[in-house]
């Protein structure tokens, strides 16, 4: 590799005259242009700070669960976000709920993207029978709305034993088809590029090519796919839990909304109970979408031209 790299363009006098801005400056300059990425990241950081500071200052182990505080209190100095019908402090519920929602999303995103990357690589790089089988399975599964299958899975297991982690795994069971298809297409186009041929001619093994040449080039796509995976995971777990299929003991955001609906919270005037979880979820979904748009711009410079 080193010999080949040496043949590349040498830094000449023209380039020498300009001092190269540091990586940091370049990044800041780029972020100034990519506003949706910045805004999305800012919201995510804000939510992270909320949960971190919250769990450090409040006893969420206790106050986020029933019978901890006086029930049905509107927001006040003592309970900034109010308390719910079951005697939970909504502030503690939100701190814990956002955290748990994020955990589900991160696990589902990681599993979905991981499986997608592996299957996509196998499918595109080796081709043949492997490709046919993987493609046939993804093609048939994709049109089936995963959410409905999840309803059946979540409905078939004992609801009392569902935890945050089983929820995350259920949600990620059907989250790999999309990433598989994207990764496969991406590897197929990369595979034909000149630098892969060069690597092969210079004696790199298949594995080396995959890890040293193809994978680094796919990072933006993998990252984007991970972010959409997190989005889809939170979306699916939210859908399941507002149908009453979530881990009912936990103060997961979707569960909180479901309980509020079950107790007719708006009808009884306890507006703060469903309102905070809804707003938190809106923030989560919007920030993930903004990050995804920003990443898309990062990975696909061609999008910029259409603006």
């Amino acid at each position: 590799m080193t010999q080949i790299a040496a043949v590349g363009p040498q830094p000449d006098a023209w380039q020498m005259r300009y001092e190269h801005p540091s990586r940091w400056t370049l990044m800041v300059r780029y972020l100034r242009r990519n506003k949706s990425l910045v805004l999305g990241l800012a919201i995510v950081i804000g939510l992270t700070l909320f949960t971190v500071i919250g769990s450090l200052t409040i006893d969420t182990e206790k106050r986020a669960y029933p019978l901890a505080v006086k029930p049905k209190q509107p927001p006040s100095a003592e309970y900034p976000l109010g308390t719910d019908f079951f005697g939970r402090d909504m502030l503690a519920v939100m701190v814990r709920g956002i955290w748990q929602t994020a955990v589900i999303g991160l696990i589902a995103g990681a599993i979905g993207t991981g499986v997608g990357v592996i299957l996509g690589f196998l499918s595109a790089y080796y081709g043949g029978a492997v490709d046919t089988v993987i493609r046939a399975i993804t093609e048939v599964l994709l049109p089936i709305p995963a959410f409905l299958i999840l309803v059946i899975i979540a409905g078939s297991i004992d609801r009392k034993s569902v935890t945050i982690y089983t929820m995350a795994i259920i949600v990620s069971l059907l989250a790999w088809m999309g990433p598989t298809r994207i990764m496969r297409a991406q590897v197929l186009t990369l595979k034909e590029r000149m630098f892969i041929n060069v690597a092969r001619l210079s004696g790199m093994s298949n594995l080396e090519i995959v890890f040293k040449e193809i994978l680094p080039n796919m990072l933006p796509f993998i990252l984007a796919s991970f972010v959409s995976g997190v989005f889809a995971g939170i979306f699916a777990s939210f859908g399941l839990s507002v149908l009453g299929l979530g881990p009912l003991r936990e103060p997961l955001i979707g569960n909180t909304i479901w309980f509020a609906q079950q107790q007719a919270a708006f009808f009884n005037g306890w507006w703060w109970w469903p309102l905070w979880p809804s707003l938190a979820l809106v923030l989560i979904f919007v920030s993930l979408t903004l990050i995804n748009v920003g990443l898309d711009e990062l990975a696909n410079p061609r999008v910029r031209r259409t603006e």
Partner: peptide, 14 residues
């Protein structure tokens, strides 16, 4: 578009 219809519905109810 990023927000599920369910959440928009909840906020509209509010």
């Amino acid at each position: 578009q990023a927000v599920p219809a369910y959440l928009l519905g909840l906020l509209l109810i509010f």
